[in-house]
Design a protein around this nucleic acid. Structure first.
Length: 352
DNA sequence: AAATCGGGGTA
DNA sequence: TACCCAGATTT
């Protein structure tokens, strides 16, 4: 493929094939920034409802900056990568306090803000402020790799350099915003990871991969390590209309979110066995009735979590409560940010 | 340079 | 099951 013809051709394709999305009808850097943070490692279909809820709850960056962090996390519940939500909030505060409530207009300054890395800085700078800097995301890696025939692994430092250099060589000064979005949209709709639409592709005659039937072989990605298994046993202590919950504070998964007292094992154990552990016995006492839930399987990228919930009902006041634990009424629990797994369990067993 | 972070979709 | 998704941050 001749690099000279690529930008014009793909932008033309974009103009007649792009999806209509709310953050494309605006030049408000706040909305563009919000959409980019939500869409990090997240498909448009999954992120769209969250975007709409955030814009409704916080129409401006000042409104978002003024909100409590827990409220932001609660709105983010179910999206995953919760550091994004905390950085979103931190970034809003930084924009208000350091930049007088207005987003900085250059790649370099945007990059200095929390949660804004190379991709997001390039996206905001080009889309909101028309700076000619290329975005490099999973779509860009894939499209450039296939069309131009680059087999450097995309998750290697050399690959990242090489693809970034090529992308910046291609991005036009005239309309960097349309160009960047065109490449990504093309990757999302046509040049997909599996079963790309090569038979109706405008680049068919110019595509390195198609001419050699290498669509499946490109891009090259080095293998990641295998995932591990974790076995979670949650003690759901029920006292009248309250449940004992705790905020996760350890440096581990779901930091800052609420769940139940957790006993983790590296292999399956009978749930009854968990109740014999010292810490659990202290909390539960002897006169309790026990219900054990079904097994929930939760597949994440680098781990699979098998969870069971052990519901313990007791009329006695619980004395030995662990650190960070306290009782919450059901309406209170509804407002707490929770991992999806815990959220699902609560919906099945309680009316929040 | 490698590890970590979630949840959902797809084949 | 394995891989991917408009990646960023920490170690």
């Amino acid at each position: 493929m001749d690099k000279r013809y690529f930008p014009d051709k793909i932008v033309k394709w974009y103009e007649s094939n792009k999806r209509s999305l709310p953050w494309r009808d605006t030049r408000d850097p706040y909305k563009i920034w919000l959409s980019e943070i939500i869409l990090q490692q997240t498909r448009v279909s999954q992120g769209l409802p969250y975007y709409l809820r955030f814009i409704e709850a916080y129409p401006t960056v000042r409104a978002l900056a003024a909100a409590p962090e827990q409220e932001v996390l609660r709105l983010w519940q179910g999206l995953g990568y919760y550091t994004r939500a905390r950085n979103l909030h931190k970034c809003a505060k930084a924009v208000v306090s350091l930049h007088n409530g207005e987003f900085p207009r250059t790649y370099e300054t945007l990059l200095s803000l929390p949660g804004i890395g190379e991709y997001t800085a390039a996206a905001i700078a080009s889309i909101a402020f028309k700076q000619a800097v290329a975005v490099v995301d999973g779509n860009v890696f894939r499209v450039l790799s296939r069309i131009f025939g680059i087999d450097t692994p995309i998750n290697s430092p050399e690959g990242k350099k090489q693809f970034t250099a090529l992308a910046n060589e291609l991005v036009p000064t005239a309309q960097p915003d349309a160009h960047n979005q065109a490449v990504m949209e093309f990757g999302a709709l046509f040049c997909t990871p599996q079963n790309p639409q090569c038979d109706t592709c405008i680049f068919q005659k110019n595509c390195f991969a198609f001419s050699r039937k290498m669509q499946q072989a490109l891009p090259v990605k080095l293998k990641l390590k295998a995932s591990r298994k974790r076995y979670f046993y949650y003690i759901v202590l029920e006292h009248r209309n309250s449940l004992l919950m705790r905020k996760r504070e350890q440096k581990d998964i779901w930091l800052g979110l609420f769940d139940f007292h957790l006993v983790e094992k590296n292999r399956p154990v009978k749930p009854e066995k968990i109740l014999e552990e010292e810490a659990v016995k202290k909390m539960v006492g002897n006169d309790a009735s026990i219900t054990i839930s079904k097994n929930y399987k939760h597949i994440l990228t680098h781990q699979t979590i098998f969870s069971r919930f052990i519901i313990v009902k007791s009329d006695k006041k619980i004395k030995h409560v662990h650190q960070n634990h306290s009782f919450y009424s059901l309406p209170q629990i509804a407002a707490l940010p929770k991992p999806v797994l815990v959220s699902r369990f609560l919906q099945e067993h309680y009316v929040l």
